[in-house]
Amino acid sequence: MYPTKYHKPASLEDAVAGLRSAEDGALLAGGQTLLPTMKQHLAAPTDLIDIRGIDGMSGIRVEGDVLVIGAATTHAEVAGSSDVQAAIPALAQLASGIGDAAVRHMGTIGGSVANNDPVADYPSAVLALGATIVTDRREIAAEDYFQGMFMTALEEAEIIRELRFPKPRRAAYAKFPNPASRYALVGVFVADTAAGACVAVTGASESGVFRHEGLEAALSGDFSADAVDGVEISSEGFMSDIHADADYRANLVRVMARRAVAALG
């Protein structure tokens, strides 16, 4: 990789200041996207600001009906947490299927959500569960947060501190992995919530994670696998690549939605 300066601030304020003063700074949490990109010379930040040493950035706790996960919490910690397994088992299951064991022990939920890779798993859970993204300066609702492929509502030098997930009545995640990368070729997160059925789809759209209104409407009336069958899944705006074209992805959205709902019995 290109030469870079490494910083390990002790506070969020210092991290923000570090980002602001750097010529081209980048936040480092688990580094599972950033570091391979740097090794390939596709990214060349002048400064790396490692936020893992900041107090309170990682950890999992339950506050009433809300599950709170620190931004620097690893996928393995989420997958293995009894609090997550009790509150939102689908989230633990999702985390257990990210990457491989090495990735899960380094990669973090905040890093994934900040990067907003259109084929990442977490954004679908954040969106379907109506989570709140808490940053160093404000709270952002999930529906306002995701703004297209690799685009988020985060401002310059804004750092995610934690994610707050309201507990759904029930939820499930079904993923069809890319045969090569094991990222989501399509992932569908369904949540049965007080506000009705929420269905978020990752991996499919050129605009990144999105909520599927047709599926939500069908499931809000009848939260059953059969309800999925009658929904039209348009492939418009879906990605096409050597692994899957838009039509096949649209089929997978339906099949994964059905399987997610069916998994809830």
Binding site: A180, S181, I242
Partner: peptide
């Protein structure tokens, strides 16, 4: 297919 991201 220049990496394991695309070569299965």
């Amino acid at each position: 297919t220049g990496s394991y991201m695309d070569y299965a």
